[in-house]
Design a protein around this nucleic acid. Sequence first.
RNA 1: GUGAGCGUAGCCUAGUGGUUAAGGCGCCAGGUUGUGGCCCUGGAGAUCGUGGGUUCAACUCCCACCGUUCACCCCA
Length: 427
Amino acid sequence: MYRAPRGTTDILPAEQAYWAHVQQRAAEVCRLYGYERIDTPAFEDYGLFARTDAEGTDLVEKEMYVFEDRGGQKLALRAENTAPVCRAYVEHGLFNLSQPVRLYYIGPTFRYERPQAGRFRQHHQFGCEALGDASPILDVEVIELAIRFLESLGLTGLSVLLNSIGCRQCQPAYVEVLRQHYQGFSADVCSDCRVRMVRNPLRLLDCKESACKRIVATAPHIADYLCPECKDHFREVQEQLQVLGIPFALNHTLVRGLDYYTRTVFEILPQRQGSQSAIVGGGRYDGLIEQIGGKPTPAVGFAMGLERVILNIKEQGLDVPIPPGPRVYIAHVGTPARQTAISLARRLRDAGVGVLASTGTKSFKAQLRQANSLGVRHTIILGDNEVEAGTAVVRDMARNEQSTLLQDALLEHLARAVEYSPDSASP
RNA sequence: GUGAGCGUAGCCUAGUGGUUAAGGCGCCAGGUUGUGGCCCUGGAGAUCGUGGGUUCAACUCCCACCGUUCACCCCA
């Protein structure tokens, strides 16, 4: 017996309402901000990720699906979408468009991790990227967009965490100060942090070990070491957020895992917080496009995990619209009626009416039962009598009424009755 | 990769060493002559995650593997 591979799931019809809703909302919010959709391949040249997501990070070394194709090329399933979008930006000369270029994507993303709540080996990300403009207005724009999206789903109790990690100029100076701070505690530091001190000092601030947390508590804040340009940028981001009335909390230990980030970094946390709680992560990455062979190009964006978004929709008990199913069921008995049923179904569908016709393998009673469980509004009944007379019985399932009409009149009768059917509830 | 909990029909659950593994939901079929929802009756559906082991006897105890859940790591 085959099963879906570990960390993957089938999205069955019963779940589709959530996905359709979330994707429609995302597209709608992006339209409001002028972000256009881009779809990049599910896999890329391995080097694209290895170079940009920082060699030495777990993401690249342990969590990526890496494989060789038959031609011997080393490829990787995309573990995130920012680098691919930047690759497309450079490859297709999108820098020739009016800047900034605003893009969004929705699609599967792959990470070889141990599955957990809100974490899957194949999950789906929705993200936005604004490329080609360094203005702090854009940093705020993407944060606002993300918040608006989540709020449009009805989610409440969201919080924004914000920090700046500086740029190529000022970050190294801070890192030096941070190293010096840690030198006094080298005996107390955990083994992971010993490695971090050398390879990725900023991530020292992220350590959850209690001993390390104490050291972090007294560590210098990067915000105090930013260069004048980064300081201005950070200040403007905060000011703009305030102007828009978006609450946020500064968090000097927020540094993010991917190495390409510069200046602004942020996360959005939901009401209920578990270990995998962050639903949105993002920031500015002014050096990335240059790293993959483009001209120096500032950019900012975010990504969010849709599984986590849906998890929160369910936890908060929010309604999602249920796409309408067929509104008419055709029950029939006898061979002549079967033919009539099939052509009638065709004519109704031509008129835009959703129809489910019985296959005729069930008893008449069972057909009615099926019509009922499907929740159709009307059932058309065809037997020998109706076929002979060119009529059909139309039964209104909810009102428990039925009448006999000519088949031609029936079409119009139903088309009118079925036209509007607002429908919204939890599936 | 590390640690812990859990795996009984499609779903939820009972059964904790001993005759044909029980119930609910769902599914299928009936409850007379062409009419659903409620109700009643019946039926199908489980090698009790897989493979070893202990025992006269294992769904029940032990081990391994697989899956799953939660946490660590990492990250959306």
